[in-house]
Design a binder for these strands. Structure first.
Lengths: 146, 146
DNA sequence: TTTGACCTTGACGCCCAGGTCAGCCTTTAG
DNA sequence: CTAAAGGCTGACCTGGGCGTCAAGGTCAAA
């Protein structure tokens, strides 16, 4: 697929795609006329890249994540100890970030509910409508449709 | 407390504090000599500001969050319907962001564990060491110690 | 009284993630 | 053959979140 199609499919701009490539996040093939050629997996990959970038990670951070987000074919996991360690660190970083945001969320919910209830750590009046959401949507798994 | 002390206490730079003020996120008192004077709650507030900024929110976004992060004295909650709605939207935005990051996290963990296990949505081989962390640290509640 | 730490307001600079424009080439449709 | 649509590179611009001087005021200790 060409760059414009990928842009539409993944919801980012053409400019952003070229920028990602310049940052080493994408390596599309080139057809004889010089046009970039992406395969179907790029859609998922680009969505994931954008997702990380829009959540406060830098392009360099994302470069670190990429080998594992790429897809199942990549040699990773227990067979590749150094990268396992690296990825573990990434997971830890993500956990930290998620915990931070969750904390802010909870604080907001507290503000919403406990009007006259000052934030007393320990026993917090919780409204059922604002209990923890599910957060279990799996990340875009590669959808080979091209 | 003076700006330098707040900076040390909250872990941000003096420059950042002045920037936050310029962006309308902080309104410290001024003593007769023109020095900024912060109270104890500022430490918490600043931490929360920095937390949001470093997680992809803009200063404008943070302005929207502030009234509820401020602390218990502020009139909010059911007594203040428009802001309740606004805050609800913020909570939703946070939930979305948390879900996104959680998804990335899970994908990474999958890469870590399921070496020869391609990402099959539904049944995913999970390693106990990489099950969901707790994420239940409450946000910095105001600690009046000054 | 002088030194040093800390404060003030500008103002310019930097990085990052793109936006935008210019000038040109290629492919498809009429 | 020509126009429209899409692609290419290069270059400059932008906005957000600060870093970093510059030039000076304030205050406590020596």
């Amino acid at each position: 697929m060409l760059i414009g199609e990928l842009a539409r499919a993944s919801g980012v701009t053409v400019r952003a795609l070229r920028y990602y490539e310049q940052q080493g996040l994408l390596q599309p093939e080139r057809s004889s006329n010089g046009y970039r050629q992406y395969d179907g997996r790029a859609v998922t990959k680009v969505r994931n890249i954008q997702l990380l970038l829009s959540n406060g990670f830098t392009a360099q951070d994302v470069r670190g994540f990429l080998p594992c987000l790429d897809d199942g074919e990549v040699a990773l996991g227990p067979a590749c100890p150094p990268s396992v360690e690296a990825v573990s660190r990434k997971v830890a970083a993500l956990d930290e970030r998620i915990a931070e945001l969750s904390a802010v969320r909870d604080r907001l919910v507290e503000a919403l509910i406990g009007n006259a209830t000052p934030p007393r750590p320990g026993t917090i009046a919780r409204h059922p409508a604002y209990s923890r959401p599910v957060h279990d949507q799996r990340l875009q798994a590669p959808v080979e449709r091209a």
